[in-house]
Design a protein around this nucleic acid. Sequence first.
DNA 1: TGCCTTTCTGAAAGCGCTTTCAAAACGCCT
DNA 2: AGGCGTTTTGAAAGCGCTTTCAGAAAGGCA
Lengths: 361, 361
Amino acid sequence: MKRRTTTTLDDVARAAGVSPATVSRCINQPASVREEKRERILNAIERLGYVPNGSARALASRKTRMIGAIMPSLDNMLFGGPLEAFQKEVGSAGYTVAVACSEYDPQQERIHVRNFLESRVDGLLLVGAQRDPDIYRQLERQGVPYVLTWISSDARKDHCVGFDNAAAAEQLVDYLVSLGHRHFGMISGFIEHNDRAKARYLGVRTALERHGLSLPPDQLLHRPFEPDAGRDAFHLLMSAANPPTAVLCGSEPHAYGALFEARDMNIDVPGEVSVTGFDDMWLASQISPPLTTVRTPRGRMGRQAAQHLLAQLRGERLVAPRPIETTLVVRKSTAAPRPRPLLQRVAPDHFQARTRAKSGS
Amino acid sequence: MKRRTTTTLDDVARAAGVSPATVSRCINQPASVREEKRERILNAIERLGYVPNGSARALASRKTRMIGAIMPSLDNMLFGGPLEAFQKEVGSAGYTVAVACSEYDPQQERIHVRNFLESRVDGLLLVGAQRDPDIYRQLERQGVPYVLTWISSDARKDHCVGFDNAAAAEQLVDYLVSLGHRHFGMISGFIEHNDRAKARYLGVRTALERHGLSLPPDQLLHRPFEPDAGRDAFHLLMSAANPPTAVLCGSEPHAYGALFEARDMNIDVPGEVSVTGFDDMWLASQISPPLTTVRTPRGRMGRQAAQHLLAQLRGERLVAPRPIETTLVVRKSTAAPRPRPLLQRVAPDHFQARTRAKSGS
DNA sequence: TGCCTTTCTGAAAGCGCTTTCAAAACGCCT
DNA sequence: AGGCGTTTTGAAAGCGCTTTCAGAAAGGCA
């Protein structure tokens, strides 16, 4: 007697005295099978502990009920929230979310896309719009719906659920300029493979130019999105002969790092220098001084991305979602710059004071 | 002419002039097919843009190459790191990770387990060991390997990759007692469905009893794992007539909240009250005062969980992993308690000072 | 060259489910 | 009882791949 290892739909059919087709219907469209049989079937399912085989089901129906999500990172608190919101939303429509992590690396992202394509996910969630066109070609070829988040780009507008990073950055600059700032530093992410970071940087430049200002190359530092990296960059910026009066951070972890470093360097924020963040994560309002930043409604974005994808899955026609509103949140990390001495180039005491202070840590 | 929507393995076989079986081999064990044909096949695959169908493959081979992970939350920075480490590790062995989120709710977890069982995941990652035995029965019945993280329980030791939460909590208490503390408060998570939180609480109780001390019921507050909740609880604890000299937090977000609230209430930490955390996330060393806490090596746990699961997947016999070491990290949020007035019950000035201070926020 | 061993290859039988399609059962009238 | 339009049901044909199994090709040696 060969012992079967798993119970299949056929087993259930036999046990309930109906055909496999009927069992299948009973599971997928219960209304279409008569009460009496339905009960017998359900009963048999229960009794045998039957669990449908998703692979077989997917093969036959050409639907996996699975959505792939590729995030740059899970480690910082930035992507978890929206992802969770996304998952909850598509989950209630019966979809499972598979998550992969690209570590901000196009190569890795490519691999993960490929994997998801093999897995025949019903849809795909990506972050940002900038990637090898070949990837989009494949997605379209395979007819896999996708949504691009964190951005409201022009190129593939129809797929973008996100906000206008550049505009938000401009808003921040406008505000600082209105306070009287003229000398800026920026701690940015790496912009080569990151269109969100690039947009923020370009927004800063645009706004600056509009005001007849500029960001000297040595005042722009690129760092990974980590507080320690932000610290480091801030230290560099503020140890220079002629430090900026305002430091724009391309991401919030950068700003936290800057604020911590300022504390350790005995630099008063916002007295000596203003610092801004970007995203308004929970720490922004708690840190001291509370951080002036841009609020990006990420939970809403996650939900909206889900809805956008679900609409495609339902076969509805793509309509470009409208960009999600961001809001400038003014807190205590920004203020008017303190008046400068006329001979700006001198100030060696600043320099020494600041590097000295570092030893305390 | 009926246009085929996807190219299949058979198409490739035809294009390369070999049998489907050979193509299959070429993909799965390239070494077993002769150079010349292999090249023809690879070439055809490339030319046709063939992407294997995972469902079909899974159905035929009875392997999905997918691992399910059910985490209590993705929103806080706690689970993301280890999950990413886990993913990277199993990813390099060719597995994809599907993530679901239970929100600390057994019902939701149950549903997700069920879904993963239907998806026929090859393995499962869970957090904690406490759940309906029925779930374990199902897993065993279906022969799905699993690993339980964040805990080193006795019940299913063989599956646990984690640390001894109770012992770590005891260590914290011992340290505080050695500083001279006798009056404790605790901000804990909800312990009913959370064995990690429960173990920490029990550890605290055990250690306290060992020193002939106890935790009065009104000094134990249960809160969700959020800074704001921690704030709230800390405020309550410290507004009482006879506040504790040390507040133990069951999780780090609680501790951050406590520290922020202390700042806003003008309570000096560690002068007036000591505060401890649990987990040593990145903020712990940056916040002021830097937090005394227990370091739980979560990245290592993620990797080890992956290895443990992969070993099972390879068919190796289960050996109980040894618990992961935690270490007490003493920073500046703890100190000896300040001497108390003899009449402990009185101190109405304390009370007023503290509630008054709140108005500043 | 012939024979035996080793390596490759192809035919065919599933894997467990969904989904036509047509037949059966039912309900309702006349 | 017979007829007709609706449900309900079952048989059978896949979905696209893996995996025996046995036969073909290649290699080694006398």
